Amino acid sequence: MRFIDLFAGIGGFHLGMEQAGHECVGWIEWDKFARKSYQAIFETEGVWNASDIRTVRSTEIPRADCWCFGFPCQDISVAGRQKGFTAGKRSSLFFTVTGLIRDLEEKDRPSYLLIENVKNLLSINRGFDFLKLQIELAEIGYDVEWDVLDSAEVVPQHRERIFIVGHLRGRRTRKVFPIVKVNRKVNIRPDTTNTLTTRYGEAQGAGSYVAESEPSQVKQIGNLMDEKYFGGNPQPGRVYDPDGISPTLSTMQGGGREPKIITNPHGFNKGGTNKISPTVTSGGFHDNTFLNDGMRVRKLTPRECWRLQGFPDWAFDRAKNAGLSDSQLYKQAGNSVTVPVVRLIAERMALANEARR
């Protein structure tokens, strides 16, 4: 299939879709640093692109079978101001995308929409924002299905995100969810708020979720400092067991906010009796902080954060060699989608004529 990559970032959707055999025919991204990484990673010469979706006309966009986008989540995320899906200035860009689709004749509309966002989209404003999303997609001709997927299924990072697949009515697209890894159970959680549209004779998004990782797999083993040094945010001071899985990556912008792991040349007591005491002051956290008992705490490197999002080292090297700073590389990792999750979904997406091959 041919796809368009909207709000493209560094190309998490692009890489996952490409790994599943699909072809990118256009992309849009406004952040100049993300564009720099994207162009370094992918062969973009001659591929249609734009920097601001608000100035794009539908007639400019190449025809494609799928539009992929993770519209900005700052107004929806638990960590953000939670203005909501429709009131927030950035998250309302979702309606910019649907406006472009409205302007297309039905024959030119994409058969699939692949949408990603934070899990809080399901519940913000008591679920009414998610209902508005479904109504909007229904009005432009799409039935929907969705799942909350945890990146811990495919990479060592606990990162729950909602993925929504829109099916243009009449195109005989293939159902995608649920996705279950071998020997993993699906936890069925019926939800009366997600039965607006039906397809394939059943309610779409009827609450089937991939089994989530156990919280105990994210092993916090101590805290470097009092929360007051980070404005009440406890995350930057936490230290994690390198044998567990990573907490959800954020944009990690400054102040030692990168996830931290402990390295102990003498071994670490897995029984949990060793605790890290607050030994770092407001002077800040350095790449290597030594504690009184000889253990060393370090930040994850940008390369490690890109790996946690499923990017191969060659992609990181291309971005790094393009002149991106570590702070930008950290931010880009935190803003990206997890590549292997996109690939799992993309491998199940096919049009009727493709499915018979």
Rank of each mutant, 00 (worst) to 15 (best):
G21P: 03
E23R: 09
G166T: 00
G284A: 14
S246K: 05
R238G: 03
S250H: 04
K275S: 10
D108E: 12
D226Y: 12
F311T: 12
Q217C: 05
V154C: 12
S213G: 09
Y240L: 05
L308S: 05
L291P: 02
G323D: 11
S208H: 13
L114R: 04
N353F: 14
I28W: 00
L300W: 13
K175E: 15
L100S: 01
T263C: 09
A87V: 15
Y200E: 06
G255E: 10
V118N: 01
F311R: 12
R35M: 01
P190N: 12
V280H: 01
G127K: 03
R126M: 11
D293P: 03
P259D: 05
L324P: 01
F230C: 12
I261N: 10
D150M: 02
F94E: 01
K219A: 15
R54H: 08
G26V: 01
S282H: 15
L224S: 02
I61K: 00
L131A: 06
N187E: 12
S325P: 02
R257D: 03
G141L: 06
T173W: 13
S216C: 14
A346M: 13
I4A: 00
S325G: 06
L224I: 03
D243N: 09
G294E: 08
N264Q: 13
E45I: 05
N120C: 08
